[in-house]
Amino acid sequence: MTTSQPPKPTAAELEMLRILWQLGPSTAKQVHQTAVETRPEMAYATVLRLLQVMHTKGILTRDESQRAHVYAPAQEQDSTQTGLIRDLIQKAFAGSGKALVLAALRGHVTDKEREEIQSILDREK
């Protein structure tokens, strides 16, 4: 028997997931308060609706034991990110992880990050 994975989150849903990964299980009000720090135009109703849709899709769990429902990601951050990377490698890089890494290194990595990556690679030898 196979377990089905939740659908891939949209860009807006990923924004909500990033907030929940940062805060931990939270109410819609807490998620909204954090979201408006970077997106002041984000309405509470929009955040609540996104969280409800994400729960329906299986991306979030919801604790309904209290008056204010508490939302949490259904999967760990690493698991979600690994799935997204796997899809990106297949779709944009013809299945080549090397091509993905080289594209990232070509302008999306600071010198300090490059040194850290090299250190990790050296330890793995």
Rank of each mutant, 00 (worst) to 15 (best):
P6H: 03
A45N: 11
A68K: 11
I89H: 00
A74G: 06
L105W: 03
I120W: 05
I117E: 03
T46Q: 13
S79P: 02
R67F: 06
I117C: 05
G83F: 02
M42V: 08
T82N: 06
K125N: 11
L14H: 10
L51G: 05
T46S: 15
L102A: 11
H69G: 15
D63L: 01
E41M: 13
P7C: 09
L102C: 08
E124T: 08
T46D: 12
I19C: 06
R18A: 15
A43H: 11
I59R: 10
I89R: 10
T82F: 05
D78I: 03
T46A: 14
A28I: 06
M54H: 04
Q81I: 01
G95V: 03
T10S: 10
I85K: 11
S79C: 04
A28T: 11
F93A: 08
M42Y: 00
K91R: 15
M16K: 05
L84E: 14
V53F: 01
D122G: 02
Q66W: 00
D122M: 07
T46E: 12
A92W: 01
D111C: 00
G95S: 07
T61G: 15
D78L: 08
K112V: 06
A104W: 00
Q22H: 10
T10L: 05
L60C: 05
A12P: 02
E116D: 06
R114W: 04
L23R: 15
A43Q: 12
S4N: 15
T2M: 12
K125I: 12
E76L: 02
